[in-house]
Write a protein that binds this DNA or RNA. Sequence first.
DNA 1: CGACTTATATACCATCCGTTATGGAAATCG
DNA 2: CGATTTCCATAACGGATGGTATATAAGTCG
Lengths: 206, 206
Amino acid sequence: MEIETVPASAPHKGRPREFCVDAALASALRVFWSKGYEGASMADLTEAMGITKPSLYAAFGNKEALFNKALDLYEREKLDYMHAALDAPTARGVAERLMRGALDMYSCPENPNGCLGVISSVACGAEAECIREAVVARSAAAKRAMLDRFARAKKEGDFPPDTDAEGLAAFLTAVNQGMAVQAGAGATRAELERLVETSLKLWPGR
Amino acid sequence: MEIETVPASAPHKGRPREFCVDAALASALRVFWSKGYEGASMADLTEAMGITKPSLYAAFGNKEALFNKALDLYEREKLDYMHAALDAPTARGVAERLMRGALDMYSCPENPNGCLGVISSVACGAEAECIREAVVARSAAAKRAMLDRFARAKKEGDFPPDTDAEGLAAFLTAVNQGMAVQAGAGATRAELERLVETSLKLWPGR
DNA sequence: CGACTTATATACCATCCGTTATGGAAATCG
DNA sequence: CGATTTCCATAACGGATGGTATATAAGTCG
């Protein structure tokens, strides 16, 4: 929970805001998630958020700043399962929690289809290049965390010593990205479930 | 090799065209491949193709028709490894050829990064919805071909009888899509190679 | 050589894009 | 009560978008 725009103690002078910033940001996230950065027009955003353009600019800066805040929210609310997954006791547990967490998210009917990160990291127009870079940087960080976890798992004996932890991290990332693509293309939960079960069956160990 | 616009025997009346349709289409493909359907503006396209807008419209119809023809070309030239892959004698051979073929394509420095199909199938603006549907339909057909091949492999004993061929098809598709996403995000060939080797090591049987 | 057909080049169209200036409305402060 | 500050609503901005009308150039056909 955030305290609007000003630090904290502002006993609001001036006219009070007529909308909830958090709710508006959540609506914006849904639009970006459905249409991507470039596909989401300001008209789409303002309509979904229930505010006018000047209000949006006053509260969030501009479209890019709004997207970044929406991305923060996405990471915070929708990607928290990743942190929990990395805390699993074994590498296999990490993989399982990661895939099942992604599966749950992608097949939740209240969420737009697909993954905001994947949607935003595929190539698009020139104006969105900085957006793309920001998203790629974030997912690189996520992948590094996974890699570190697998390196630890290797030392702990979850994997044979000749295991390519980097390859496994890339593999798990790829399965999740592929799941996102298929979810974005309209795959059913049953199909995604099958993908997860198969991947889990192929995962080394146990 | 196509015969321009008219059936075949046209002893071209009127002013002759000053550019090569096939070369222009190849240039257009590169632009769509780099920037996606919506990210590619008519100005981008005409500049890369070396022709003016009226010439483009006269030769290809409109942006959507141009994209579909570029997609045909992409499938014909860049995705032919898929047909060859499905002809491999074993299911493992199919998987290997599919992944290595994708790897070669994604890491060819002359090609734009990523996969045109994946780029075009992730959500974007409303105007591109029909494009998205067309691409999704094509990749669904590709997946079905792979599924049929694996069903056959199951009957031929490549897999144990309790194998989930559908799950394996979804899995292989997902790895390739994930590879495309990572390639689009700028992964090196070495990274993608590692992903392929790992996936191949996990693939069932020998 | 004309007549005809087709391609090119320039300029333009309506529409939408993200963004912002302007004027009034709603609250607190003195 | 002003005075002040902040927010909302309308409407407009310059620029870019996909798509075209018009006029001219470059060929073949009779």
